[in-house]
Design a binder for these strands. Sequence first.
RNA 1: GCGCUCGUAGCUCAGUCGGAUAGAGCAAUUGCCUCCUAAGCGAUAGGCCACAGGUUCGAAUCCUGUCGAGCGCACCA
Length: 612
Amino acid sequence: MLINLLKWCVFQPTGTLIMIGHIQELIENALEHLTQRDEIQIDSIPDIQVERARNPEHGDYATNIAMVLQKQLKQPPIAIAEMIVNAMNPSKHIKNVEAVKPGFINFTLTDNCRLQVIRKIIEKKQDFGGNDIGKDQHVTVEFVSANPTGPLHVGHGRGAAYGSSLVNVLKKSGFKVHAEYYVNDNGRQMDILAVSVWLRYLELCGERLRFPDNGYQGDYIVDIARQVRSKFGDDLRVDVKKIFDQVAKDESMGGNKEDHIDDIIQNSKNLLADRYQHVFSMALKQILGGIEDDLEDFNVHYDEWFSEKGLHESDWIDRAMQRLKDGDHVYKKEGAWWFNASYFGDDKDRVVMRENGQKTYFASDVAYLMNKFERGFDRAIYIFGADHHGYIARLKAAAKALGYDADKVDILLVQFANLFKGKEKLKMSTRSGSFITLKTLVDEVGADAARYFYVMRSHDQHLDFDLELAKSQTKDNPVFYIQYAHARICSIFRQLNAQNMPYNEEIGNVNLKLLDTDYEKALIRQLSMYAETIAKAAVSYQVNTIANYLKDLAQSFHQFYAHCKIQGNNEDLRNARLNLCLATRYVLADGLALIGSSAPTEMHSEDFEQHD
RNA sequence: GCGCUCGUAGCUCAGUCGGAUAGAGCAAUUGCCUCCUAAGCGAUAGGCCACAGGUUCGAAUCCUGUCGAGCGCACCA
């Protein structure tokens, strides 16, 4: 699939990707010539795979076509390769074509063609590297969607970083992207939250009560309670005894904590009546506001905060259920309504309406899915934590039952991140409220480092996140290594005037051919791979390839910097190198922006200690 | 038990639509600041790519099995 997409996009006017298509055409023509001249006989031309040569000694691009054809032609691959090379039309972009040992054909670009990328980057600036893979495609990406029952913790951070970066990468690849946060503002958990706040409020009013085992324990609950109190004063006070009237025993009293809190919720609703909504909405507003702020500080932005409650208040859920009924995909059993998910490949059937008439969370999910497609999206991307892995089958089943193409629903799982402080693994428990919040993390290591660390591994791999490393200011820390490369370039330009060595882009462009050391070639090569790196990241949803690319690019730059003096008296060479620096700067800045990190123009730190 | 993901240098990981001698960083030994930020650049050393079969001209990459690790399997949200 990747091949086809890349093949497809090589015809798009996006710079370096064109080269692959050009080479494919050359080979195709050569094969046709050979067939016409009866030198070879092939039934059909196979997929011509052209890839970048990994080793610079092998030129810039290589194809294995001769080895693929050897079985059909019953000739040694090297002979086939030579035939193809000889039958090939000359190209003004290609300096050298070579048939080589096992049977590869290697292509070396002309200098002008290789150097073109520098001009192109400088011309297009931050628009460089984009492509049209997603042209005319509208996609919705839903990520984080944590229940608004408490602040985001570091576990949510990875989903936020990955989702946000994926949105950026898809946009850069021409998709129309809508970023959504699904706010679960309807369920029982929200009632537990509201009651937890209210009980804390009553405590602040001086009441004495036994806080339920299953209530939310965190200090943030007390903070919200305090705000409730400052707004409503004593208006929400009731006789505390009535709250606990006839409630089931709590777990630590030998009972069931779920029943206990459900009874309290019921009593609270009765006692507070209309006022219950005040507590509820204030708790929701406070927590959701906090979540929005935390995400904003993390450079994560949404186009829409989609309310589950809205689905209930409108007729979306009923419509979705009706659609399932119409398709004969639901049935009644033991009083509950079931969706026959197993018919569509899920492990088992799923309840959509419970015996007590309550619609399940899954029913909302089905409605939301339908809503996404009815809003006109061509594709719905979900990013879930790895623990939601069971959702894949049931959501895809729902998509099929609703009459959609399940392949248009992509569910990506983000594995957990383990936090380390050096060697020490930090334990996190969301239950007790003793978790590390995303805000704490961002305050501690900064958004730049946090964003990078979260996406530097493939999203479906476990990640060890070392807080000390993220904070460190050495090359061990890839974020600083990359940012330093960017800052170095900025520093070079800053000093030009003082040195009386003005920068002239035109002179540089004319003299790019002077860039012929191995370090310069390697850096140019690295720059030319940016566009395909983005294309690959977009079609495979692998944002980590961008992070890896940036590290490699920074490395190529530092190597170039160490070996090639930029501020020299030779005006031609200086300006050529400055153009190379500038191009590198644009790509570094753009790549960092894609993963949500900044590109500082200088890096100074008073508390930096030089290591001996 | 069933399902998903994974196993690459002492450590953390790249590389995986099958391709030409498997790459970084850390840790170890070590060289480089009269010169653009030494927050940097080099050199040396380190590998039955978990194991065993199979497919292929070619396998770290694909298939099967074994062993090992993590996660998920509610009329919960």
